[in-house]
C-alpha cells in the first residue's frame, strides 16, 4: 500500500510543477513516505491530513489507513 501512496505522490509532484506552494508540500510528503513505517510515527489526524493532501477521497481514508498501519 505504501508503494501506491508513493506513486500518487509522485504523480502530484509532476502535476504541481508550476505551483510552488503545493510542490513544496508534496516534496515534504515524499520525504516522509521514504520511511515505510512513517504512518506508525504520526498520529491519526496527521495521517488523514496527509492522505487528503494526496487527494484520497474521504470515503476511502479509513480503509487505506488501516492498511498503512
Amino acid at each position: 500500500m505504501i508503494d501506491k501512496i508513493r506513486q500518487i505522490n509522485a504523480a502530484l509532484i509532476k502535476q504541481y510543477k508550476d505551483n510552488q506552494e503545493e510542490l513544496k508540500k508534496q516534496n515534504l510528503i515524499k520525504k516522509i513516505l521514504e520511511d515505510k513505517y512513517c504512518f506508525l510515527k504520526m498520529d491519526i489526524d496527521t495521517a488523514f491530513s496527509l492522505l487528503k493532501d494526496l487527494n484520497i477521497p474521504d470515503e476511502y481514508l479509513k480503509d487505506i489507513y488501516l492498511k498503512l498501519i
Binding site: K25, L28, I29, K31, I32, E34, D35, K36, Y37, C38, K41, M42, I44, D45, T46, F48, S49, L50, D53
Partner: peptide, 21 residues
C-alpha cells in the same frame, strides 16, 4: 527503510489539520 521524525514534525507544523474523526 529508515528516516527521522523531522519531516513529520515539519508537516505537522505547517500543513496538518485536525480531522473530523
Amino acid at each position: 527503510e529508515y528516516s527521522s521524525f523531522d519531516y513529520i514534525n515539519e508537516y505537522q507544523n505547517n500543513y496538518a489539520s485536525l480531522s473530523n474523526l
